[in-house]
Computed example of a mutant assay.
Amino acid sequence: MTVSQKLLPGVPVIESMLFAASLDDMGLSNSERDIAVQLNEKGFAVFDFPDEAIDQRIERIIAALTPEYDLEHYRAHGWARKDQRVQDAWRTNEDVRAIAANTVVTDLLSKLYGRRAFPFQTLNFPVGTQQHIHSDSIHFSSIPERFMCGVWLAMEDIHPDAGPLVYYPGSHKWPIVYNDMIGKVIGTGADFMAQKPYEDVWAAMVEASGAKPELFQPQKGQALIWAANLLHGGSRQNDPTRTRWSQVTHYYFDDCAYYTPAFSDPLMGNLDLRQIVDITTGQTAPNVYVDRPVEQVQRRASPVGAAQPAPVPGKTPPDFDPQRYLALNPDVAAARVDAKKHYLRFGIRENRRYK
Rank of each mutant, 00 (worst) to 15 (best):
I58E: 00
I61T: 08
E94T: 07
A89R: 04
K82D: 15
R57A: 14
I54W: 05
A63E: 00
Y74Q: 11
T92N: 06
T103V: 13
R91T: 08
A63S: 02
I58Y: 00
N102W: 00
I61R: 09
Q56A: 09
D83E: 06
W90M: 04
R97W: 07
D55F: 05
L71T: 12
Y74D: 13
L71F: 07
R57V: 14
V96I: 00
D83V: 00
T103M: 10
E72S: 15
E94Q: 11
Y74E: 13
E72L: 13
A101M: 00
K82F: 12
D88Q: 08
A98Q: 06
E59I: 11
Y69E: 07
D83P: 00
I62P: 08
R81G: 15
R75P: 07
T66Q: 15
V86K: 11
V104T: 04
D55W: 04
I54Q: 06
Q87Y: 11
D88G: 06
K82A: 11
A63Y: 02
A64F: 04
N93V: 12
T103I: 09
Y69R: 03
R57L: 14
A98V: 02
I62G: 11
D95T: 06
E68S: 15
A63H: 08
A101S: 08
D70K: 03
V104Q: 04
Y74W: 08
A89C: 09
T92L: 09
D95W: 07
T66G: 13
E59V: 10
D83W: 04
N93I: 10
R60Q: 08
L65H: 15
Q84G: 11
E94C: 04
V86R: 11
T103Q: 14
I62H: 10
W90L: 03
R85K: 12
D70N: 11
E72N: 13
N93H: 12
W90F: 01
D83R: 02
R60K: 02
I58K: 02
I99F: 01
N102Y: 00
T66S: 15
Q56T: 07
E59C: 07
V96C: 01
V96T: 04
A100L: 03
I58G: 00
E59D: 12
I62R: 14
V86E: 04
I61H: 09
T66K: 15
H77W: 13
T103L: 10
W79T: 11
D70Q: 05
Q87I: 05
D55C: 07
Y74P: 06
Y69L: 09
R85H: 11
R85E: 13
W79M: 13
Q87V: 07
T106E: 03
R97Q: 05
R85N: 11
